[in-house]
C-alpha cells in the first residue's frame, strides 16, 4: 500500500469519525472538535492529491498544498467565532444547547 493511498484512507476515516461526533454529541464544544476532525480529513484528501501530483522535480503539487494552508486558517477562524458565540450564549441564557427541545434538561456529565 503506498503512503498517499494510506493517508487518503485515514482522511476518509477522519471524515467519518468527525461526522459521527457532529451528530452524536450534544455539547457544542464537542461538536466543534468533531467539525475540526472532518476539516482535517478533508485537508488530508487535498494532501493526497498534492502528493500524487509530484512532477517536474517537485515531490508534490504545490497548489493544493497552498490551498490546505488557506483552509486551515479559515477553519480556525470559524472555530474561534463559534467559541465566542457559545460562551456569550452561556452568559446570556445559561443554556448552550443547540437543540431547541433539550433546554432545561441537565447535562449527562459530558461537560468537564
Amino acid at each position: 500500500m503506498n503512503p498517499s493511498l494510506l493517508a487518503g484512507l485515514v482522511g476518509a476515516a477522519l471524515v467519518g469519525l468527525g461526522l459521527y461526533g457532529l451528530i452524536a454529541h450534544p455539547h457544542p464544544l464537542r461538536k466543534l472538535l468533531a467539525f475540526n476532525l472532518v476539516g482535517s480529513g478533508v485537508f488530508l484528501v487535498f494532501g493526497v492529491v498534492a502528493r500524487r501530483g509530484a512532477a517536474a522535480g517537485y515531490a508534490f503539487d504545490p497548489v493544493p498544498q497552498a490551498m490546505v494552508i488557506t483552509g486551515i486558517v479559515v477553519a480556525f477562524a470559524a472555530s474561534a467565532l463559534a467559541v465566542a458565540l457559545i460562551l456569550r450564549l452561556a452568559v446570556a441564557g445559561g443554556d448552550v444547547s443547540l437543540d431547541p427541545q433539550a433546554s432545561g434538561r441537565r447535562d449527562d456529565g459530558e461537560a468537564e
Binding site: S79, V83, I86, D107
Partner: peptide
C-alpha cells in the same frame, strides 16, 4: 490545528466552567 485550537477549546471549557453553565442536552 493542534496547538492554538487546543488552547482555544481548553480556554473556552474553563470559561464555561466558571459560568457554571455547562448545561447541554442529553445525547
Amino acid at each position: 490545528g493542534g496547538g492554538v485550537t487546543g488552547v482555544l477549546l481548553v480556554t473556552a471549557g474553563k470559561r464555561l466552567d466558571a459560568l457554571k453553565a455547562t448545561r447541554s442536552g442529553a445525547g
